[in-house]
Design a protein around this nucleic acid. Structure first.
Lengths: 209, 209
DNA sequence: CTAATATTGACCGATTAAGTCAATGACTGT
DNA sequence: ACAGTCATTGACTTAATCGGTCAATATTAG
């Protein structure tokens, strides 16, 4: 993607640009072929001509969205995690907060990137993302203070349980949000965090000395 | 769906019928609109004419698959759970075994029904399924022997952790299976069960007296 | 008021997808 | 061997859809 085109896109009014990006991520999350540009413009509330005026083609739109999504996730998620925190519960807690902050602006970001990576929507760029990810995961689970765990508790299993619980809880919340109408985000945010925190308290009690 | 048509379908060779059912569930799992009859016949290894000879139309095919899936899940899952088992860990363990047995014949059954229910693919039939489900869930988590739990452990939270761990582990296994070629099912079955059992052992140790 | 820019949506050609049907293959009793 | 029945095929039709275009219109700036 040429800098010229990218500059044109980044000059769009911020709120409208995010509406297009979110609509595109939601639609491309169905897979490249199943994604419809008509559905994207409808969701974003713009005309079809404007979409092609800015992005040129469906492929270029996808390329931009992938590059943009990776850039945001790297800068506002991967790079913000403090690896000096050797308490795994606290380390995972950071990711809960960071993911939640990101999903406020871009609700489909992580789901979209997962789909894009699985379908290999853009070979070159996603290969880079794959490298970032495959370096991240082992790093995330290494340098952990295992002395915090009770004797007889397998740290690897405990970490999986913590991770899966957090994923499971998020999903159960997402289902409820889908079925309800527009919600008070601030209020939901607090309830969500306090509930998931109670699970972390439970884990601290059962897994830690 | 008239009994006549249903009879015609059930008269198809069992192995071929299951191939069609599995192909249809896999395809409809993408959503009704994204499901392609061409893809179904290709996956099932039959001609397009035959599919329409048996099922008449895409809608009637979907109706049959939904009815069939609900019937199988009710008879081979819901009705086989022993509610006299008051140990929740043992009760959930039953569901793991039952789901695994079912997923051998119909790998997409539960995922398909979840999608069908969310998209409300067939109002009348799925409303019935929703009623079955909404009666099942509270029943499943009631009549539990809470005296087995350690003091200070909230049974409801512990049950969620157990449930989410089982879901998370299944998903992590599914991802690995997708990326590998054909596998020795018997060997995988044993490994899967023994690994998930080790998580149940962990839960017994940390949650129970 | 004018020129430049942003935005629209009807329209086009190509592709796709549900559904059809005439033809063929396979089997069965005589 | 043969007539008759049933199972099965895949090229074809038709309507809708989708990516992409463009002349027209709205908006903004000087």
């Amino acid at each position: 993607m040429s800098d010229c085109e990218r500059h044109k896109i980044m000059a769009i009014d911020r709120e409208k640009r995010d509406r297009i990006i979110n609509a595109a991520m939601k639609e491309f999350n169905k897979g490249y072929k199943n994604a419809s540009t008509d559905a994207i413009v409808k969701e974003a509330g713009i005309s079809k001509g404007l979409l092609f005026h800015y992005f040129g083609s469906k492929d270029k739109l996808l390329d931009f969205i992938i590059e943009y999504a990776i850039e945001v996730v790297v800068k506002e998620y991967f790079e913000l995690i403090n690896f000096e925190q050797r308490d795994i519960l606290e380390r995972i807690w950071q990711t809960v907060l960071l993911k939640f902050d990101l999903s406020y602006k871009y609700p489909m970001m992580f789901d979209f990137l997962t789909t894009a990576y699985k379908e290999n929507m853009n070979g070159v760029v996603l290969e880079m993302y794959g490298r970032v990810m495959s370096e991240f995961t082992p790093r995330f689970f290494s340098g952990i203070d295992e002395s915090l765990f009770k004797d007889g508790i397998e740290p690897k299993m405990a970490m999986n349980v913590i991770y899966w619980t957090q994923v499971g809880y998020s999903h159960s919340q997402l289902e409820q949000i889908d079925s309800t109408d527009i919600i008070d985000f601030q209020k939901e945010y607090e309830r969500y965090l306090s509930e998931i925190q109670s699970y972390f308290d439970l884990f601290r009690k059962i897994f830690y000395k």
